[in-house]
Amino acid sequence: MIIKTAGLRKDFEVRKKAGRLRRVTETVTAVDGVDLTIERGELLGYIGPNGAGKSTTLKMLTGIMVPSAGEVTVCGLRPVPDRVALARRIGSVFGQRSQLWWDLPLRDSFALLRHVYRVPEAEHTTRLKACRKLLELDEFMDTPVRQLSLGQRMRGEMTAALLHGPQVLFLDEPTIGLDVVSKQAVREFLASLRDKGDTTIVLTTHDLADIEKLCERLIVIDHGRVVHDGSLAALHDRYQMKKQIVVELEEPWAGDQRLDGAALVGVEGLLIRLELDGASVGQVVAQLPAFRDLAVVEPGIEDVITRLYGSDRG
């Protein structure tokens, strides 16, 4: 077990204006009793809406922030008191911030990081070589970081986070703002890292395609609590997302027809949208009037997540 938390909690004191001069202090709980057990080599998706407590959890796991209550161990260390020792064992990419040297060529940043993390030369060279090949860095190794495109920079950031051979890699929105090709490159790289199995990866993202393509396990957090921990399929089952059928009819929908085992959820001209409820696609189609075309829509993760956040809000 490489990451373990029990009852992890973080409260913030927020001072609010109450009237012209008076101010009141309110306690806001950002993380409210999170229990996590993450095994070596897992690729874990950690998702939730803005303000759900994702970044706060990451900060507590990486030793930047002290928990208000609860236990945390990462790589067998307590993050805050053992910050420096832990820093050698973890790598991180925070999409919006750079750990590279803005005005220097990418190559120099890597060389500097070798010194910062005191990595032996041979090890450094081997890892850099592997990353250069997988992430195709060669064409911009000598370009100052400020001139890199966002996609190139992100590939550089990934490399920077891995050069010291971390046991755990924390990724916060690694694909944010990237073009389709770069996103794909980043995902493929992470998949290959996952398949090798020595690096545990914790990925937070708003891009649900990242999750669908990469994560076997998904932890959903909302209002500081874990609302789901399991596979994507389990999430589907739990929220009983239903298949939908979109049908283009020959004649406009009469309106008074009833269908067994399906519910009408939308009409737009000749197009109608049905949600299956107990019946199979075949059984529903048999009840339909003449139609020109038909498509079956599997529930997407977006729908699942929307419903998940929604259910908690209600």
């Binding site: 900060k59 030793g63 930047i64 420096v84 973890i90 925070f94 911030r97 750990q99 910062v116 993390y117």
Partner: peptide, 14 residues
């Protein structure tokens, strides 16, 4: 303000 201090804290140095 920019969160750069976090990057600094994530490195194994003072």
């Amino acid at each position: 303000r920019t969160g750069l201090l976090d990057t600094v804290l994530l490195r194994p140095m003072s």
